[in-house]
Design a protein around this nucleic acid. Structure first.
Lengths: 335, 335
DNA sequence: CTGAAAGCGCTAACAC
DNA sequence: GTGTTAGCGCTTTCAG
């Protein structure tokens, strides 16, 4: 993959001979460092412009040992709003530090993810932000050059000591379910995505903890998992509504199941209370009232990137884990 | 066991002396090129692992003239779904070509955008995808190294001859408004964002063209611009509803204004036909029927990136402009 | 204030 | 099959 467009690129030597000066003078002018005779400087600048000279970053980096001022972000998929928001925040922080951001898709399986990490590492980036897809964080860590700082996002790193920024999933779910229990609900449906995701396991754990703390028994048949789309949550909710004694309230582990459940309730003209993890666009316009467990997606990226740049500039403190709090908020409009 | 705080990075020379071979042998093993005595190869690999050796990409690039296998995407903001979808598609194409993607935010003003372009260009990326923010495309083009292929997205490049992928805005708007006219509507509201955006101007032009083609006069007072949020479109629509003779149908230039107008109609319990440019998440769940002018966001990124990689591999054809068609589709659920 | 020469880490020729 | 040497484009001593 070599870009061969037009003739050849001008080097510093070409500029020097065209300007009738030495290479070093060009270097000085280009880098704007040290004083240079204004006459010569002007000649150099003219020559550089005529040849549309651009410094070779590889040569610069090789000689000076400087980095490419680039960090990497490994996420599942940029088309997902959750990851896009994180990437946006990271890109802003990177820019503020004079760096750019490479966003890499982790792909579907662990092997792909490892290959991408390898690629990223081979580029000698200044640092890496990772939202782990595979469960094997140690395998990931093994790929990573010890010289490259890494911050893990959204999943607590397992088996390795590293910086991370995570959401307080268990407590967020527990608090939400507790509000339902306090309102007298016992038959509370729990709709979750696949438990392969650590975040989902934590939310389910919080769900159960709420009952344990309240000393209330919960009917395990009201828990459904592997709901990865609004449609599957719609079906699951519809099925539950057909039960002899249907749930009287709903807790959803993420916005996709929340949206599906909301739609089912709406279609069946039920107004049972529902609380779902995650906010989503237009949640305010949903045609019924419900609650969400909200957190600051943007902060995941921002704080993670700030942690990373602190490491990049030499911070040697013990790795820390930032846990982002959740809030319960009302959404939807009463019709 | 290697130290986690190795002060310096191992070079090929370190590996060579540790393995007791020459530098060249290490190079061969590392690059997997040419046959090497298995014994030596094993020794080299062991030494490389012990020193956790990683090739220096700057030295490699400098020596071989190879690129960093990186393309750039300049967009306004990754937190916007439109751009995130494009970025996602581009990232996938890049990956398929063994490259990674730097996504850069253009910032608020033209100066920022130029600075970012300069940064990107100075990195000698293999190619650049640009969604221009400022109107001055020529100024952008002037910053760009002639060796770097560029593809413009979503806005037709003005004053320069370059590849581009754009949406058929004018025809999409015209067709949509024509359906309303054909249904007998004359007092059709037109809600648009700022006309500083070329896309918005094209959609407004299409709006007007529909009337011209139908030979119908349109009341210009029903056109509102500078609607950048759902809230402002909500207000604008509410005001129109209070007119002596309110509009009987609505056309919205993007999903922001569409959402605001829908909400206003819903609140005021009106069921006048509405068609808006852009799809949006949950459009299927909106509590009333309406139509959208849809196009394939993903294709903007995918086709643009494919065009770019064709240039990168040496395609010298005349620049081409791909115009993506639009479709009118039904959305929302009848209550 | 400017120039000549050395060398960053690596690979491409060419020797052995 | 393996080692030696030169040099990619640049910055950095160190002289002039």
């Amino acid at each position: 993959m070599e870009s061969k467009h037009s003739p050849k690129r001008a080097t510093i030597g070409d500029v020097a001979s065209r300007a009738g000066v030495s290479i070093k003078t060009v270097s000085r002018v280009v880098n704007g460092v040290m004083t240079v005779n204004p006459d010569l400087a002007a000649r150099v600048r003219a020559a550089a412009a005529e040849l549309s000279y651009r410094a070779n970053p590889a040569a610069f980096a090789l000689r000076t040992g400087a980095s490419f001022r680039t960090i990497g972000l490994l996420i599942k998929d940029l088309s997902n709003d959750f990851y896009a928001t994180i990437a946006s925040a990271v890109a802003d922080v990177a820019r503020a530090h004079g760096a750019q951001l490479i966003t890499a898709h982790a792909g579907e399986n662990t092997a792909d993810e490892l290959a991408v990490v390898r690629d990223l590492v081979s580029r000698r980036l200044d640092g890496l932000l990772i939202v782990p897809t595979s469960g094997d964080h140690a395998a990931l860590a093994r790929e990573i050059d010890p010289h490259i700082p890494v911050v893990y996002l959204d999943r607590r790193p397992e088996g390795i000591n590293a910086d991370s920024v995570v959401i307080d999933n268990a407590n967020g779910a527990r608090d939400a379910v507790t509000t339902l229990i306090n309102d007298g609900h016992v038959r509370i449906a729990g709709l979750f995505d696949t438990l392969n995701m650590p975040t989902m396991r934590e939310r389910l754990a919080g769900f159960r903890e709420a009952f344990a703390q309240a000393g209330v028994d919960h009917d395990g048949r009201l828990i459904v998992t592997n709901l990865s789309t609004p449609d599957s949550a719609f079906s699951a909710t519809s099925s539950m509504l057909a039960l002899e004694s249907p749930p009287t309230a709903y807790f959803c582990g993420n916005n996709r199941s929340g949206i599906g459940a909301l739609r089912a309730l709406w279609v069946h003209e039920r107004i049972d209370p529902l609380v779902t993890f995650d906010d989503f666009e237009l949640s305010d316009l949903m045609p019924r009232r419900f609650s969400i467990v909200k957190y600051d997606k943007h902060s995941i990226g921002r704080l993670g990137a700030e942690l990373l740049f602190r490491r990049i500039s030499g911070d040697q403190h013990e790795p820390q884990s930032i846990v982002l709090p959740t809030q319960i908020e009302k959404r939807g409009v009463a019709k």
